[in-house]
């Protein structure tokens, strides 16, 4: 700061300062620092950079970690998708009533209506079973393969602490 320069020289843009501010024109404005502050500032800044480098591995690997405005909505969206795709459908399926809400209410107030509904439901179940393809049962044959031997059965019963004589009872 060139204290001794005239105000005109210091103010090429030709401002007029009040006398009090000209008198107080900086050079020494009373602000000071601890002894040797500027000698050590550089090394403390470099230490700070080194510390942050170590501490912010996560933010280097995943730069958006340090920007919650980016990752919070992303995380919320991911959670929402997981809930919608995996959790809620199962819950929904489990909570679907056999009959709709209004039918349930009417069933509660009208016994004959309830009987009718239940009958029609059981009728529907019967029909479903009738329509099922059960031909595979008829085509299934017993081959006797994979049957346990007498010894294996005896050993199994022994493990369960049951006398093997029980087999002879039948």
């Amino acid at each position: 700061m060139k204290i001794n320069q005239s105000i005109q020289e210091q103010n090429p843009e030709n401002e007029t300062l009040p006398p009090i501010l000209i008198e107080l024109r900086p050079g020494a404005d009373g602000i000071n620092t601890p002894d040797g502050y500027f000698d050590s500032l550089g090394s403390r800044i470099v230490d700070g950079i080194a510390n942050r480098k170590g501490a912010s591995f996560l933010s280097v690997a995943f730069p958006s970690v340090s920007k919650p405005l980016l990752w919070v909505p992303t995380l919320a969206a991911v959670v929402a998708v997981v809930l919608l795709v995996f959790v809620l459908p199962e819950k929904k399926a489990a909570e679907i009533p056999a009959v709709d809400e209004w039918t349930e209410i009417r069933m509660a107030f009208d016994a004959s209506y309830a009987e009718e509904v239940l009958l029609s439901e059981s009728h529907a179940v019967d029909k479903e079973i009738e329509n099922m393809d059960l031909s595979y049962i008829q085509s299934a044959t017993y081959t006797g393969k994979n049957e346990p031997t007498q010894d294996e059965i005896s050993e199994y019963l022994k493990d369960l602490e049951i006398e093997p004589d029980i087999l002879n009872e039948h």
Binding site: D29, G30, I31, N32, T33, P34
Partner: peptide
């Protein structure tokens, strides 16, 4: 504590 300005400098500040 790191300030030793005159009274008028304090008023300016």
């Amino acid at each position: 504590t790191h300030y030793d300005g005159t009274e008028i400098q304090k008023r300016l500040r």
